[in-house]
Design a protein around this nucleic acid. Structure first.
Lengths: 164, 164
DNA sequence: GGCTTTTTGAAAATAATTTTCACTATCATT
DNA sequence: AATGATAGTGAAAATTATTTTCAAAAAGCC
């Protein structure tokens, strides 16, 4: 049963074919779910959205689609330390371009920021060039993330013990 | 049964007591295991070492000890994307000071590097100060990691599909 | 030494993710 | 447009890392 493809330009089709993969309904649906939000969705979050819209799509398939989209560079996977992967479009349509994450170690809140990127770029260029030369790695990606306590959590006077 | 404490200066005792925790044999043994290597051990790796030396110590206890040591800042936990946490001493006795990781996305090899830290420091100062002001976070930590392909893996002419 | 509370350890439980396998859809070739 | 080889899907079972449970044991204050 051909089920029709969710709305949206099927550029994914070209990308998938370019890598020798097939363009399928669940893969497009997963991409759509990620396009529709600015949040950092877990695999299950994605499943809930996708399965809500197209109940025939199962959790396993969502996991596989996410893996594949990460592999071909369309989606990026993050780890915020809560034991599950978080997924985002690599190039998000809604303004959300290159950004990094600021995670509150206390409440888990995640802030996306896009500031001070010039300074970062400088740093990255120096470092990536150096790493390439010294360790002979072809650098494909970097992970920059800051952890701290948000204002709200700081006001709760929590000691180390017991914490959280 | 008091089992005696593994060799090594019991500075851990002071630190633990300072936070209101007790100084115990398994906690010291876990710390020793991490001190004795420069590798990035998983919880099970640590268990194998510790349990090999002191068979009465169980896996659960190792997990709990690692959690606690992370909480009090003696140990740092990393994630290299293979689904399990990796642990390192925060301040390693053997030269291994402040460093970052370069991970091969292909074979999983991890290189510790300590180069270009001046440039990094500059970048971190600017960014951390900015984040604090703009988002009112008290920055406590950062995570910087580069991914790429090591020379060996590049020579294997592996296409995306099939990969690994 | 006795007492209170924390820690331990084995086993069971949990949670995220992966594998299995029979069935179905995609798409290059008729 | 039909066919067929192959890749993809989905439900359930399996796996893996980690956490919880709970009774027994150890730590450290009196």
């Amino acid at each position: 049963m051909t089920r029709g493809i969710p709305p949206g330009p099927p550029w994914l089709s070209k990308v998938l074919h370019g890598y020798g993969y097939r363009y399928t309904f669940p893969r497009e649906a997963v991409l759509q779910a990620l396009s529709d939000t600015r949040e950092h969705l877990s695999a299950e979050d994605v499943y809930l959205i996708v399965h809500g819209r197209y109940p025939q799509i199962g959790l396993t398939t969502v996991y596989r689609a996410l893996d594949l989209l990460v592999k071909i560079g369309v989606v990026v996977k993050f780890d915020f330390g809560d034991g599950r992967g978080r997924f985002e479009l690599a190039f998000h349509p809604s303004a959300k371009g290159h950004h990094h994450h600021l995670v509150c170690t206390c409440c888990g809140r995640v802030v996306d920021y896009t500031d001070w990127l010039e300074k970062e770029k400088e740093f990255l260029q120096t470092t990536e060039k150096g790493l390439k030369q010294k360790y002979d790695f072809e650098i494909t990606d970097h992970l920059i993330q800051f952890c701290g306590k948000c204002a709200e959590c700081r006001n709760m006077t929590n000691k180390v013990k017991g914490g959280e």
